[in-house]
Design a protein around this nucleic acid. Structure first.
Length: 817
RNA sequence: GCCGGGAUGGCGGAACUGGUAGACGCGCCGGACUCAAAAUCCGGUUCUGGCAACAGAGUGCGAGUUCGAUUCUCGCUCCCGGCACCA
């Protein structure tokens, strides 16, 4: 009787083998080629979701494949453990965030182990542990000393009812998600990291990241947004204050017809005093949201301040408006408006009856219609006094030089990238290691007083951070003068923890320093895999921290991730699967019912990794059915007497054909898994091979020897994807050594040779026939045979063959008649 | 709004460098086994016409380049991701 496929039992046995032999615990072996395989670590939300299973499986397949290639593979796992959901759970269920988080980690670790991932669990880290976050506190204090962090005011979403700062996610249609109160914009002092100091390098090094997807590099380039332009100042009539603006189009300077400032701009605030209508507008503008998407899509509104700026070159009077789409915190809080040549300025001018002035004309002299839209192309200057007739470059230089000579401006490079605000007014995060002293100001916590430990036992109400109610936390003494001082109660943005964890895995147990020489062995990460949603922020911050760590002598590498694979979302009913949307499918139920291998196989087979994966419950059974067939085929083979060794020279045609299929499959799967990362087509290829084996009816010793080769090959090729069944079947085929320690199969070139090939024949690009020719047939022989084909002759008939296109390597002939 | 991506049978997807559209799987239909069902196995399955051989149409929409376009170019539509405090 054939043993039935029992995933529960065989998966347990395989795990026990890997654990007992410490297969995935790796230490540095200088001189041996390493492969650091990493996924973006999970937030411990409670249970694994399908997105986790997908990304971890992709990475595990790559890690196991690389191991079979003979490389020394490190694959660690950890927890991005700080974050908002823990606070929400605390509010909802009254469980302290720490307790909730540790409980989730314990549960999810069990789930990961059940899925059979090849992790070195000794290296597990959780970012909420002081042993971890102490090092980012330490580096932050070093950055402080170097002037790479600073404090300034920045805007937050303020919920006036809950008296708390809201994340953008918690603002629904301009209202607080719990209070439903109208959210206000409020400026508070916050800590910033000077990522803009690295803007040029972050931009330039993208060109060297050959292993990154092009779209990700383009998005990062656009995000950094380097632009060359001119900074200039406008005098304001009757005011001491000047308006500073930046423009990338100094060539349009003569087309400025008005200025716009933010609601918080001092000019607007002053004008609003004693003008109730203006005051109301300024107040209303305070309620716009902080998210850029809302700013860009909201109705553009404005009011004239009754103040006039003076054009720096013409002396014209330009009305100054307050506008809701200009933000005080980005740039200078003021913009010059050129409605003739900027579409947003144009729309605003049309709405408010402001003049539109043409100062650029097409170089070919064709007319411009400024009644419908702005003309935004480069061109030749008109209506621009001494600069008329100049092109973009020439005018840019000349106007910049003129402003510079007048002391009214200078050329400048600006970035869209803004410094990284790392302060969060939340409890469940890394305490920012700063002390405030009345006499000495803001000071970093001295190294010997680190870490600043976050108290884990707290009363959590949801109204503000509990740290603000804990004098035992915030009361301290000044490290400089020894007088009374208070600690910063804000915590770091959780992106800080995830910006360097990849390096810490290498030095996970060092309590003397952040990183050590082991980092030099393992870093950089050879393969990093994670969701496409992290294409900009997480990946950019990580690149930034890598450069910081390099500049502080902690690392020798410029970039953290050599190759990047961005995995698509798991969608359900067209939307991202998430708890918030309530459309999750629990992987645990599928694991319990079908086993880890079925879930892994289904995930890899259903879609290529970079594509969004639309979930469907059907198909899981198909994956399970395939594993059962696979299992039964190998078991049936193993029960019969073992065939003699394969003699490749003594095979009949059918045996040669199956053997050719086996070796073609090796070629195909090696390319799919090793280069293309298209695991779906790799699985399909092995399925085809198994279909061929099942159709192959030959019980002779030579036939069985060919089947054995096909089955052993299938087991090895699939073992990175379904490692448990791979482990069991490799044993069943009579091997004493474990599948996990086997080398990846190599195709035999001799087995791939074939005598004849099929050529498709087209007439005028349409398929009309197929012919068999010798593999080494020349073009003349091929076209002669093509013209002899019955169906081809029908379509050629008595017409003249004008052109014969013979493409032997594509196995195609096209006859143009 | 801006940046990036996507759209192929009833469904997930394949076609990698411009060269056979629909591999592989799901579902469905038919058959075998069974008292019966499940499971399993065999066959069929883009649409239209045809007993068939085969023919015509067909890769979101509209143009274009080419002997030949799912693939390249231009212009659209819809969907997804990101937009700096979700992670």
């Amino acid at each position: 009787m054939t043993k039935t496929y029992d995933p529960e039992a065989i998966e347990r046995a395989a795990r026990e083998y890997w654990d007992a032999h410490r297969c995935f615990e790796v230490d540095e072996e200088p001189g041996r080629e390493k492969f650091y395989c990493l996924t973006m670590f999970p937030y411990p939300s409670g249970q694994l979701h399908m997105g986790h299973v997908r990304v971890f499986t992709i990475s595990d397949v790559i890690a196991r494949y690389q191991r079979m290639q003979g490389r020394h593979v490190l694959q660690p796992m950890g927890w991005d453990a700080f974050g908002l959901p823990a606070e929400n759970a605390a509010i909802k269920h009254g469980v302290p965030p720490a307790e909730w988080t540790y409980r989730n980690i314990d549960y999810m670790r069990g789930q990961l182990q059940r899925l059979g991932y090849a992790y070195d669990w000794r290296r597990e880290i959780a970012t909420c542990r002081p042993e971890y976050y102490r090092w980012e506190q330490w580096l932050f204090t070093k950055l402080f000393e170097k002037g790479l962090v600073y404090r300034k005011n920045a805007v937050v979403n303020w919920d006036p009812v809950d008296q708390t700062v809201l994340a953008n996610e918690q603002v629904i249609n301009g209202r607080g998600w719990r209070s439903d109160a109208l959210v206000e914009r409020r400026e508070i002092p916050q800590w910033f990291m000077k990522i803009t100091a690295y803007a040029d390098e972050l931009l330039a090094d993208l060109d060297r990241l050959d292993g990154w997807p092009e779209p990700v590099k383009i998005m990062q380039r656009n995000w950094i947004g380097r632009s060359e332009g001119v900074e200039l100042t406008f005098d304001v009539e009757g005011e001491a204050e000047q308006l500073s603006v930046f423009t990338t189009r100094p060539d349009t300077l003569f087309g400025v017809t008005y200025m716009a400032v933010a609601a918080e701009h001092p000019l607007a605030e002053r004008a609003a005093r004693g003008n109730p209508e203006l005051a109301a507008f300024v107040e209303e503008a305070r309620h716009t949201q902080t998210a850029e998407a809302s700013l860009e899509t909201m109705e553009k509104k404005g009011k004239p301040l009754g103040i006039f700026a003076i054009h720096p070159l013409t002396g014209e009077k330009l009305p100054v408006w307050v506008a809701n789409f200009v933000l005080m915190s980005y740039g200078t809080g003021a913009v010059m408006a050129v409605p003739g040549h900027d579409q947003r300025d144009f729309e605003f001018a049309q709405k408010h009856g402001l003049p539109v002035k043409q100062v650029i004309a097409p170089a070919d002299g064709s007319p411009v219609d400024l009644s419908q839209r702005a003309y935004v192309e480069h061109g030749v200057l008109v209506n621009s006094g001494p600069f008329d007739g100049q092109g973009f470059e020439e005018a840019f230089d000349a106007i910049a030089a003129r402003l510079e000579a007048d002391g009214r401006g200078r050329r400048a490079v600006h970035y869209r990238l803004r410094d990284w605000g790392v302060s969060r007014q939340r409890y469940w995060g890394t305490p920012i290691p700063i002390v405030y002293c009345e006499a000495c100001g803001a000071l970093p916590v001295p190294e010997d007083q680190l870490p600043v430990v976050l108290p884990e036992v707290v009363k959590f109400t949801g109204a503000g951070s509990p740290l603000k109610q804990m004098p035992e936390f915030y009361e301290t003494s000044c490290p400089k003068c020894g007088g009374p001082a208070t600690r910063e109660t804000d915590t770091f943005d959780t992106f800080v923890e995830s910006s360097w964890y990849f390096a810490r895995y290498c030095s996970f147990d060092n309590n003397q320093s952040m990183l050590d020489e082991r980092e030099a062995y393992w870093m950089p990460v050879d393969q990093y895999t994670g969701g496409i949603e992290h294409a900009i922020l997480h990946l950019l911050y990580s690149r930034f921290w890598q450069k910081l760590m390099r500049d502080f002598g902690l690392s020798g590498f410029d970039e953290p991730f050599t190759n990047l694979l961005t995995q698509g979302m798991v969608l359900k009913d067209g939307a991202k699967m998430s708890k918030a949307k309530g459309n999750t499918v629990d992987p645990q139920q599928l694991i319990d019912r079908y086993g880890a291998d079925t879930v892994r196989l289904f995930m890899m087979f259903t879609a290529p990794p970079e594509q969004a994966l639309e979930w469907s419950d059907e198909g899981v059974q198909g994956a399970h059915r395939f594993l059962k067939r696979f299992w039964n085929a190998v078991q049936r083979f193993a029960e019969a007497e073992a065939p003699p060794p394969l003699d490749a020279d003594a095979l009949d045609e059918a045996q040669k054909e199956l053997r050719r299929k086996t070796h073609r499959t090796i070629t195909k799967v090696s390319d799919d898994v090793g280069r293309r990362y298209t695991f779906n087509t790799a699985v399909a290829a092995v399925m085809e091979l198994l279909n061929a084996v099942q159709r192959f009816d030959d019980e002779s010793p030579a036939g069985r020897a060919v089947v054995r080769e096909a089955l052993e090959t299938s087991v090895l090729l699939l073992s990175p994807i379904v490692p448990h069944i791979g482990h069991a079947l490799w044993q069943a085929l009579g091997h004493a050594s474990a599948a996990v320690d086997q080398r990846w199969p190599v195709a035999d070139a001799a087995a791939l040779e074939e005598a004849t090939i099929e050529i498709v024949v087209q007439v005028n690009g349409k398929l009309r026939g197929r012919i068999q020719v010798a593999a080494d047939a020349d073009a003349a022989a091929i076209s002669e045979k093509a013209l002899a084909d019955d169906n081809v002759r029908r379509f050629v008939a008595d017409r003249v063959v004008r052109k014969k296109i013979v493409v032997p390597e594509r196995r195609l002939v096209n006859l143009v008649v």
